[in-house]
Design a protein around this nucleic acid. Structure first.
Lengths: 183, 183
DNA sequence: CGTAGCATGTAAGTTGTTACATGATTCG
DNA sequence: CGAATCATGTAACAACTTACATGCTACG
C-alpha cells in the first residue's frame, strides 16, 4: 500500500499521453503543464526508477544511434489504475506561500518606491505569461486539433489567462496607490 | 554570512509589529498573512531558537501566572537590518504547483462530472475566501484604523479579492463547458 | 467532566532543489 | 572551437509537515 506522492501522479498523468523518457517528460511538462506544475530532473529520474520497481510503469532500454541510450517508460495497468483513482479524489488544499505578497505586506518598512518596483515587475511577468499562453494556444490548435482531451487543456490555459489578467489589473490599481503615497 | 530562508524573513517581518512568542506569531500570521503565507509550529519554534543564537532576535522568558511560561522574542538591530535588506531585493519566482489544475488537465481520463465536482468545490472555496477577506477588512478598520502600514495590508487583501473573484468567474465558465460535455 | 485554549517543543520522515558529473553530436 | 541539445543520474543539503509529548486553566 505505498502512498504515492504528487510528483508520481504528475508523471503518471503525462505518461498517459504515451511512452516517454525522463528527458521527454521534462520537455513535455514544460509547455503543457508548465504554468502550474514543475518537476526537476533531480525528482524525475529517481521517481521513475522507483515507480518501475513498484510496477506502476514499465521500463525499456532503447538504442539511440549517435545519441545516448534512452530509457523509455510506459504506464502499466496498475499505474493507470492509481492515476484514475487519484483523479477522483478532491485535490488537497495547497499551502499558500507567496513571497511577493509577503514583501508587499511589509512594504511600510521601506520606501514606497521599492514596493512599486516589485509590483511593476510583477505586472511585467503577467504580460509575459499572457504571451506564452497565446503561443501555447496556437501550438494546441496545431498539434492537438482533434484530441478529445483538448478541452481540458484549454480549461487550464484559460485559468492562467484569467489569473494573469486579474493580477495585471490589480497591479495597475496598486501602482496608482503607491504613486499617491510617494507624494 | 548565514543565508536566511523565507521562513526567517516572515517571522522577522511579523516581529516588526512588536515583541511576541512563537504562539503569538502563529496566531497573528493566521489572520494577517494567512491567505498567502503559512508557517507551522514545527518550523516556527526551531527557527526562532536558531535566530536567537544568531543574534537576529532577542529572547526573554516571561512568567505567565496560571499559564505556561512564554518566550518573548523581539527584533534586534541586526534582525531589522536583514529584514529591510530582504525587502529591497526583488521577490524570487515561485515554483508553480497546483494540484487542482493538474487533475483538471488530466480530466479527460475520467468522467466530466468528476472534474465538474472539483471545479464546483473550488468555486465554493473562493466564496469562503471572499467572506474571510470581508471579515479581515472589518478587523483592520477597527484594530489598525490609523496604522501607517494599513494601506499595504489592504493591498495584499485586495490581491486576494481580485484573485478569488477571477477564479470564481473562471469556475462559472468552466462549469458551463463541463455541463455541455456531459450531454 | 470533557474540550478548547495556552504554550513549547522534538523526532522522524518526506519532499524538493542545486550543483555536479559524464559524454556524444550538431550547429553556427 | 564553443555552445546548445540530447540523455541520465547522484549527493548534499534545505525545507517542511506530521505526529507525538507535556501539562495547566477556563468554560460550558
Amino acid at each position: 500500500m505505498s502512498r504515492l506522492n504528487q510528483s508520481q501522479f504528475a508523471l503518471l498523468g503525462l505518461l498517459s499521453f504515451g511512452a516517454m523518457s525522463g528527458y521527454d517528460l521534462k520537455q513535455l511538462s514544460g509547455w503543457s503543464v508548465g504554468h502550474f506544475w514543475r518537476e526537476s530532473y533531480g525528482q524525475i529520474y529517481p521517481t521513475l526508477k522507483k515507480m518501475a520497481t513498484e510496477g506502476l510503469v514499465s521500463r525499456k532500454n532503447e538504442a539511440n544511434p549517435g545519441r545516448p541510450d534512452r530509457y523509455v517508460y510506459a504506464l502499466t495497468t496498475a499505474g493507470r489504475k492509481e492515476l484514475t483513482a487519484w483523479l477522483r479524489k478532491p485535490p488537497s488544499a495547497e499551502v499558500p506561500r507567496n513571497e511577493f505578497l509577503l514583501k508587499l505586506f511589509f512594504g511600510g518598512l521601506a520606501s514606497p518606491s521599492i514596493s512599486a518596483e516589485h509590483v511593476a515587475e510583477h505586472r511585467a511577468q503577467c504580460q509575459r505569461a499572457l504571451a506564452t499562453y497565446k503561443a501555447t494556444r496556437k501550438r494546441l490548435e496545431k498539434e492537438a486539433a482533434n484530441d478529445p482531451q483538448k478541452p481540458f487543456w484549454l480549461m487550464t490555459l484559460s485559468y492562467g489567462e484569467h489569473m494573469a489578467r486579474a493580477k495585471a489589473k490589480w497591479c495597475d490599481e496598486t501602482l496608482k496607490e503607491l504613486e499617491d503615497r510617494k507624494k
